[in-house]
Nucleic acid binder design. Structure first.
Lengths: 239, 239
DNA sequence: CGTAGGCTTGAGACCCCTCAAATACAGTGG
DNA sequence: CCACTGTATTTGAGGGGTCTCAAGCCTACG
């Protein structure tokens, strides 16, 4: 949406509607579960501060983390068009959320065609991120999977100004990283060791640093298209 | 969209717009590549007949198939909001497509809020399918992956009336199945053998039959929510 | 200072991969 | 109708990546 704004595609009414979305806000604690899989779809959220993730429990008791949300992301759009949640959502650390109702979102789509197109674009973009994960989980080694995930987070954080001197905070435990990447926590640890020995990723506590971001991007063959691309002109013209 | 229609949510104008989408049609041959990754986004398609798939080439020369399209699906929505294709699309067998332009789609969204909401819902639904694949590729055995994929295809085909007496045609080669599931073609073959020995899947040539669909669904722990769910009432009311 | 949870490291096992060869099948030309 | 050829599938053997189980360490926090 900030992309749309930058392109001057938003009317004043549009902006007012967006600001209204953030009218309410609520503090949430680390580890707090916002909702569980299967519950009714009652609200969506703008994540103002903190990290969150959506997840599914598996038969064997472990979980698969589907998506990691960073500040500025919208949580719950995944469930738009469904009556029950397809996945649970929990906070990784403490933060602030701005809940809004599905009715509110529907009204917004009805009122502003531009925002409607924007919502489609957001949904498609999230699909693009999922697609990248699918490609990387399907046929790549643990090093590439972890490296790719870290690099994606790095780019997303940089876009919101959360990378300082090439360093950023990663509040996820290795267990949680394993749940993201489909790896055991044990192997995540070994993989970090390998990436360190190769001089690609240094991690101390929750702080991550890439000595050579370019080399890492090359190793994981990162395709920036799916994250960086601007909205096409078709959005902005009315014909 | 047929879901929306069934709910009587489409006005006559909406229906006219949808029918216009299928104004043009073109025959396509088996194996024909509709577009390559990285090409300009010039058109989307309704797939009227035949199967197609979207794919990405990997470094090692193999490909990852991202999605399999069946008759009635819309091809290329993945790229809506991008200027370049994120993935190539190719036909599996011969068929018919109805191309339409991004401008046409944008106009449709601007004209009909109901259809706009429907497009969001479709995008989210495709995301839900990708999510299921992610869960299954991440942490499941080859048997569960293959079984889950076959069962999903089975349900999608049944919805469009392409399952007769519990049998359906599967035009994908084992190589292609491997590219969908992140497995080698060799292991796909072994996995079919295992599923046959367990009495879950019989396959002769391109014809597939489930002796006990319920047992298969249970083995792969299939969650029908993400495919079957009807659109929520919020779409249909105007408040 | 003690405890709990997260991280590291080691050993053995399993799933799936690669390479290779044999078999089945489809289309082609004789 | 039959040999020929290329492609798809099956089957076998060996190897590698990741898993599980288990023990030890490190850090945070009471």
């Amino acid at each position: 949406m900030q992309q749309l704004k930058r392109h001057g595609a938003l009317s004043e009414v549009d902006e007012t509607l967006l600001i209204e979305l953030e009218h309410n806000s609520r503090r949430v604690t680390a580890g707090e579960i916002l909702w569980q899989e299967g519950s009714d779809v009652e609200l969506f959220c703008v994540l103002k501060a903190g990290w969150a993730y959506s997840f599914r429990y598996l038969d064997n008791g472990s979980m698969q983390i589907l998506k990691v949300y960073l500040p500025g992301d919208i949580i719950g759009m995944r469930d738009f068009g469904f009556s029950k949640r397809l996945a649970g959502v929990a906070m990784i650390n403490a933060g602030v959320i701005c809940p809004f109702s599905p009715q509110h979102l529907c009204q917004l789509i009805r009122t502003s065609p531009t925002l409607a197109a924007g919502m489609v674009a957001i949904a498609v973009r999230q699909q693009a991120m999922l697609t990248e994960r699918l490609v990387y989980i399907g046929r790549h080694t643990a090093q590439q999977r972890l490296g790719h995930f870290l690099y994606e987070i790095y780019l997303r954080l940089r876009r919101i100004g959360a990378v300082e001197e090439g360093r950023f905070q990663l509040p996820l435990s290795q267990e949680q990283l394993g749940d993201v990447l489909g790896l055991s926590a044990v192997h995540v640890s070994r993989t970090f060791s390998m990436l360190r020995e190769e001089g690609l990723v240094l991690k101390e506590r929750q702080e991550v640093f890439f000595p050579d971001p370019g080399a890492l991007a090359k190793m994981v063959e990162f395709n920036t298209t799916y994250l960086d691309e601007a909205l096409p002109p078709a959005f902005l013209s009315s014909d």
